[in-house]
Amino acid sequence: MKIIRSRNFTATRPWGALDIANMGGITTRLHWTDQPYKWHVNDGEEVFAVLDGRVEMRYRENGVEQSAILETGDVFYASIGTEHVAHPIGAARVLVVEAQGSV
């Protein structure tokens, strides 16, 4: 049993994470960041939920770059093969659910 107060979590580096659970190879991690990640494609699907802050999610569809501003409470689903990168607008805390060891 765990209760995690996401607003209180701060990492020592951008994209630092608190491991919450590993359920049959699917990880749930709380990330803190104030810096962009890198363009990547996950090994599987990814669910990215903004718990605190705002994030500009950039992604490519058919080779064309798109973006969406994710507010607190918004969820981004990256299907297999979705190239994407998260750019926080200030500090943000995000919950990421993905296959263990994914980029």
Rank of each mutant, 00 (worst) to 15 (best):
V97P: 00
D52Q: 15
G73Y: 11
Q100R: 15
G25C: 12
G63C: 11
L18Y: 06
D74A: 14
H31W: 00
Q35A: 09
A92E: 02
A91M: 03
K38S: 14
E71A: 13
F76D: 04
Y37G: 08
E83L: 03
G16R: 09
N8T: 14
S67P: 00
I69H: 14
E98D: 15
T27C: 05
V50N: 01
L18K: 11
T82I: 13
V103A: 08
Q35N: 10
T12F: 10
V55Q: 10
Y59T: 08
A86R: 01
E65V: 10
V41N: 06
P36T: 03
A86K: 02
V55P: 01
H40C: 13
E83K: 06
L51N: 12
E56P: 03
W32K: 00
E56H: 08
D74K: 04
N22W: 09
A92W: 04
Y77R: 08
T82D: 10
V97C: 14
V50F: 05
F9H: 15
G44T: 15
G16T: 06
K2H: 15
A68Y: 05
I69S: 14
L70K: 02
F48S: 00
V97F: 09
T12N: 13
Y77P: 03
E65M: 08
H84Q: 08
R29K: 15
L70G: 04
P36L: 09
K2E: 13
A21L: 14
Y59P: 02
A92C: 07
T12S: 11
L70V: 04
F76T: 00
T82S: 07
F76C: 01
Y59H: 14
Q66I: 05
A21W: 02
W32M: 06
L70R: 02
E61I: 08
G101S: 07
T27D: 06
E56T: 13
R60A: 06
E45T: 04
A21Y: 04
D19Y: 01
A68E: 08
D34C: 15
F76R: 02
W15I: 09
V50W: 03
H84R: 12
F48H: 09
R58S: 10
E46F: 05
A91H: 10
N42T: 14
